Amino acid sequence: MTRTAHRIRNLTTAAAAAAGLLLVATGCSSGGDGAGEAAGGVPVVKKGKLTTCTHLPYPPFQSEQNGKVVGFDVSLIDLVAKNLKVEQKILDTPFENFKTGAFLNSGECDLAAAGMTITDERKKNVDFSVPYFDATQALLATKKSGVTSLADLKAKGKKLGAQAETTGESYATGKGFNPVAFESSDAVINGLRTGQVDAVVIDYPVVQGWLKDKANADQFALVENISTGEQYGFSVKKGNTKLLAAIDKAITDAKADGTYKKIYEQWIGPLPKAQS
């Protein structure tokens, strides 16, 4: 997608990207250099590790707490790593690279896990796991804006924001908006706080997490749920069938034995019956 001239870059993220990949380890230090094989002959880019590319922060899917990256996605990939008898290692990378599979193709990562919607466009560059999460978008507005829906936002000429390179941004553009694009979810909520925008379109679970904070709940309101039929998937380099099969098995087994439900309730909330 062509980037809007209104893009506001998160300087910390940009600096990290410019300096190279920022390593945030969820396990021990990266022992063993070079590629290797995990259990079952699954190839890994670092011996003894399952290296995951993500983009921080994006709670409740992945965020740093007390120096450790945790979240819904992290917990699910930990299941994969356990089955493969390796440890998960996380790299914080720019989100736009997930569409192209750049860090998968370059051998920096084994997989990408970033609350990422499965789309036909992205399937051209990466292979996706079975869906692991049914997602919806949400419109969050400042209470002082008086906005009650996307249509109302447009009628009042208010400013809309979204996270860059996401399906939320694509949805807003498809509805005729020219959204202010922010580099991270933190930048999105800060854009609301500072009055750069009056409302934002972003994944509903992210909004749900924000509104648990009383200061956010006092200032902002969820004014519209937007059903888009989106599903999240983990991605691997095209043709990496062994790792893809291992990821699919971990997701399927977790749904069958109740582990998925426990992880969902820990990070998201009550599991909808349709997903149980």
Rank of each mutant, 00 (worst) to 15 (best):
F98H: 09
K85L: 11
S149D: 04
E121P: 03
A81C: 04
A81L: 04
N125E: 02
R122W: 12
T93R: 00
L91A: 15
K82N: 14
D127P: 14
A114D: 04
D92V: 03
F133K: 01
G101V: 06
D120M: 08
L84P: 01
D134R: 06
A112V: 15
D120W: 10
A135R: 06
A113Q: 00
L139W: 05
G115N: 09
L150A: 13
K99F: 13
K82E: 15
K143M: 07
K143L: 10
L139Q: 01
G101A: 09
D92R: 09
T100N: 08
G146D: 14
K144Y: 12
S129Q: 10
K89W: 02
K123A: 15
N83R: 13
F98R: 00
D120F: 11
E96Q: 06
D120Y: 07
N97D: 11
F133S: 05
A141K: 00
I90P: 02
E96S: 08
E121M: 00
I90R: 09
T93N: 11
G101I: 03
N105A: 14
I90E: 10
E87T: 04
E96Y: 12
F128Y: 10
L84M: 05
N125H: 12
S149H: 05
K85I: 00
A138V: 09
A112D: 14
A102K: 08
D92N: 13
I90Y: 07
I90A: 02
Y132M: 04
L111H: 02
N83H: 04
A81E: 00
G107R: 02
F128V: 00
V130I: 12
K123W: 01
K89I: 02
L104Y: 02
F128S: 06
P131C: 06
A102I: 13
K123R: 15
E96L: 12
P131G: 04
K82A: 15
T119K: 04
T119I: 05
D120G: 07
N83M: 09
K99C: 05
G146S: 15
P131T: 03
S149A: 10
F103T: 03
A138M: 11
K123P: 11
E96C: 10
A135E: 14
Q88N: 07
L104M: 08
S145Y: 05
L104S: 03
V126K: 08
I118W: 01
M116N: 11
F133T: 01
L139N: 01
G101T: 09
I118K: 05
A112Y: 14
F95H: 06
F128N: 07
L140M: 10
S106K: 08
L91M: 14
A114E: 01
L111I: 14
R122Y: 11
P94R: 01
L91S: 15
A141V: 00
A102V: 12
F128G: 03
N105E: 13
T148M: 08
N97Y: 10
G146Y: 15
K85P: 04
F128M: 04
S106G: 07
P131N: 08
L104C: 07
D92G: 08
G115Q: 02
I90Q: 10
R122C: 05
